[in-house]
């Protein structure tokens, strides 16, 4: 048995209940998964300037910008309903939150259009060209 038969279902019913949530992509890896006092320490101290936002995390100054999801796209946060299931079993994920924009943070450089994350947002439009139906 090759193990490629397992399927992960997405509980679409959960989409309706999912809340819009603020998401932030940090320029560091935090070795932890779980609750955190984000609004108490981070959100409440963000400074919003014309071109960018600034905040500090663990003493390091960060510069951030908000990005909207590309046209025709929505942000979803998917959560494994049964994280301990093995790879061979069918799994289920639910939609735990949604977002239509995200904030990403750079360590030192000001956020700009050459940031890899910003560039990665080129993809959906190009995907449409590669995968869209060809006219007769």
């Amino acid at each position: 048995m090759s193990g490629h038969s397992s399927v992960t279902l997405v509980q679409w019913s959960t989409l309706g209940e999912a809340q819009r949530t603020a998401v932030h992509l940090m320029p560091c890896e935090i070795e932890y998964n779980g609750p955190a006092q984000v609004s108490q320490y981070l959100t409440s101290t963000i400074k919003d300037r014309k071109q960018e936002k600034t905040v500090s995390f663990r003493g390091r100054g960060l510069r951030g910008a908000e990005l909207s999801c590309p046209q025709g796209y929505t942000g979803l946060v998917l959560k494994d309903v049964n994280p301990n299931a093995s790879d061979q079993e069918d799994r289920t994920v639910k939609v735990s939150s949604t977002f239509d924009k995200l904030t990403y943070w750079n360590l030192e450089t000001p956020p700009n259009s050459d940031d890899t994350l910003v560039m990665s947002m080129d993809w959906p439009e190009l995907a449409e060209a590669i995968h869209g139906a060809v006219e007769d």
Binding site: Q19, A22, E29, Y32, A36, S39, L42, V77, S97
Partner: peptide, 14 residues
């Protein structure tokens, strides 16, 4: 990309 984590609402996703 290396060295990234998410803050999602009141939680951290490594």
């Amino acid at each position: 990309e290396d060295c990234h984590s998410w803050f999602i609402g009141q939680a951290v996703q490594r």
